[in-house]
Amino acid sequence: DVEPGKFYKGVVTRIEKYGASINLNEQVRGLLRPRDMISLRLENLNVGDEIIVQAIDVRPEKREIDFKYIP
Rank of each mutant, 00 (worst) to 15 (best):
F67N: 03
D57E: 14
R63W: 11
S39C: 15
K68Q: 10
A20K: 01
I38M: 11
I22Y: 01
D57K: 15
N25R: 06
Y18M: 11
P71F: 07
L42F: 07
D1K: 13
K17N: 11
Y69D: 03
R63P: 08
L40F: 05
I56E: 02
F67Y: 02
V2L: 09
D57Y: 13
V12I: 13
I65E: 02
D36C: 11
K17S: 14
E61I: 07
M37G: 04
Y18S: 10
K6G: 07
Y18D: 12
I51W: 01
G30V: 08
I52Y: 11
G10C: 11
N44A: 11
Q54P: 00
S21D: 09
E64L: 11
I15A: 01
Q54Y: 13
M37I: 07
E61L: 09
R59Y: 07
I51H: 00
G19P: 01
V2N: 02
K6F: 07
D36S: 05
R35V: 08
R33W: 04
E26A: 14
P4W: 07
G19F: 11
V11E: 02
L40N: 04
L32C: 08
K6H: 09
K62D: 10
G19V: 05
E64V: 09
R35K: 13
N44L: 10
Y18I: 13
V2K: 03
I15M: 04
Y18V: 10
D36Q: 05
D66E: 09
V58E: 03
Q27S: 14
P4F: 09
L31H: 04
N23W: 14
L24D: 00
V12R: 00
V53Q: 00
D66V: 12
Q27R: 13
R59L: 05
E50A: 10
K6D: 02
Q54H: 04
V47Q: 02
I15N: 01
I70E: 09
L40D: 02
I15F: 03
F67D: 02
L32K: 02
I51L: 09
N46G: 08
E43Y: 09
P71S: 11
E43F: 08
D36Y: 09
F67R: 03
D1G: 13
N25H: 07
K68V: 07
Q27G: 13
Y8L: 03
R35G: 10
E50G: 06
E43I: 08
T13N: 04
P60L: 10
K62Y: 09
P34I: 12
N46H: 15
Y8A: 00
M37Q: 03
R41L: 13
E16R: 13
K9A: 08
Q27D: 12
D36V: 05
I38H: 12
P34M: 08
V53Y: 00
E16Y: 15
V53T: 00
